[in-house]
């Protein structure tokens, strides 16, 4: 299995496991099994980077039913944490198969085990995803803008 990568957010080490793929909107996609021809099935969750920015998740809701086709960047849900609110968007064109029902009762697994039991939904897509080094490079290039965004909004 490829080694995990680490992205330094200031002093915080955001781990990027080598056993899965990524999307630009800071989700990981871990291959489950082959879907229909040309499609792959993935479990999807927040990367350590996103969880670090969100901090404690209070509330998660989805705006579509399981087994719905989605377009890339289509809004699919909402999240509220101690630090942030955000809409959530589909990582690629594809199909959202099912949601992690446990999180709707108690989203704390997102914080406790974001790469495991804190997975968000199952997703089927035939599109290309980012490799761990791709994702690490993306974080590197976006880190300044992210810091500006956060500082701009928090005025500190």
């Amino acid at each position: 299995m490829p080694a995990d990568l680490v992205f330094m957010m200031g002093k915080y080490e955001a781990r990027i496991p080598g056993d899965r793929l990524y999307a630009e909107n800071h989700l990981w996609l871990k291959s489950q099994d082959a879907g229909p021809a040309g499609q792959s099935r993935f479990q999807v969750g927040f990367t350590a980077y996103s969880v670090r920015l969100l901090q404690d998740v209070y509330f998660l809701s989805w705006s579509l039913d399981p087994d719905s086709p989605v377009r890339h960047k289509q809004e699919i849900g909402e999240i509220e944490s101690s630090k942030a609110v955000s809409s959530l968007y589909a990582p690629r064109d594809g199909r959202v198969l099912d949601f992690n029902a446990a999180l709707l009762q108690d989203p704390s697994a997102i914080n406790l085990d974001n790469y495991g039991t804190g997975w968000l939904f199952e997703f089927e897509t035939g599109e290309t995803l980012l490799t761990p080094p791709d994702y690490a490079a993306l974080l590197e290039s976006g880190w300044e803008a992210t810091q500006r965004l956060i500082k701009g909004q928090m005025n500190d």
Binding site: N25, L53, E75, A84, V85, S86, Y89, L149, Q153, N155
Partner: peptide
Amino acid sequence: VGTAAGLKIDLSKLFGAP
């Protein structure tokens, strides 16, 4: 500008908003 104190950050862009 400067009075957003106490509000939460909107991370939608980060999570893929158009």
